[in-house]
Design a protein around this nucleic acid. Structure first.
Lengths: 156, 156
DNA sequence: CTCGATTCCATTGACGCCCATGTTTGCCCA
DNA sequence: TGGGCAAACATGGGCGTCAATGGAATCGAG
């Protein structure tokens, strides 16, 4: 499955349009909905982005009572309520809604930050600060990453 | 599965291009993405390199809520955000981004250092120093490697 | 008819592709 | 066993294509 990797800085024009990075579009290409799903993060000053498949997985998970606590149900409900479907134009640009830009403090530039299965959209300077903080903390604690074994069906 | 072994010194031309060692390319050949994933190490002045399969393993592992602590989530998020997909050209060369070269202090030469499942890219002189230090420490401590039994049904 | 939103077209600049060259390695044959 | 030939790899440079961006044109709703 395709992943969202790396960070891209793109310009927001005066119409509110911004190009979705070509590699992000490529990972979303197999999906029926040609665009992104965006909702305001409740933990950070940024916008969460993902594909429709992720929303469906979230929906499926909600059915799983054992795995989802009441708090998690609340959260997923908030996500569904706030999620917008932003389809891109023929050039691969989306239009960021007013309140979304306001929530992230985005004005004329924004950063698309890959998070693996999902991504985030930040105001560049805000992201720089947030990243520096995490990086400093990570450098101090030096956690190790427990990796799963490779999934059997490797190559083609 | 293929491993990254040995160390190779290659030249970086004025366009920032450098040949990925042929044996490394051979190791990655079975994968769909024809290139490497590179991200800046947070513990050393070097660049970490791996294949897309390694990123997918990381992504899979992240889904495992029980196994991942918040610190580990931070780390993996940083890796995803910093990871660059560097596909190689028909001659097997990649282009090293500016900030990546800066982080490792690379100018006109770089060393590809095999690490088994992954590899690293260093500025040659920096690596020489780091290696000498590790070698000295290993000589002093005389660590032993506990080996697993061969996994029975592996080979394709 | 006017305003807003979406699509179309043009520009620029980075990136990927092609070809050429030197050098090393491995192979074949005398 | 030595020489020479050929394939593979590392390297340089030029050119075409695509992505990002800006602005104009077109479509639709109020």
């Amino acid at each position: 499955m395709g992943l969202f990797l790396s960070t891209f800085m793109n310009k927001v024009d005066k119409k509110g349009r911004v190009s979705v990075p070509a590699t992000f579009r490529a990972t979303l290409a197999p999906q029926p909905f040609q665009g992104i799903i965006a909702y305001r993060s409740f933990t950070a000053a940024c916008v969460e982005g993902c594909g429709m498949d992720f929303m469906e997985r979230l929906s499926d998970s909600t059915q799983d009572f054992a795995a989802f606590s009441p708090e998690q149900e609340d959260i997923s409900a908030l996500i569904f309520a706030d999620a917008r479907q932003l389809s891109w134009d023929p050039e691969g640009r989306i239009v960021l809604p007013e309140d979304v830009m306001a929530h992230a403090g985005i004005t004329d530039m924004c950063a698309f930050v890959g998070k693996g299965q999902t991504f985030q959209i930040w105001e560049p300077e805000t992201y720089r600060a947030a990243e520096a903080e995490i990086r400093a903390r990570a450098f101090k604690n030096r956690p190790t990453l427990p990796l799963k074994k490779p999934t059997g069906g490797d190559g083609k």
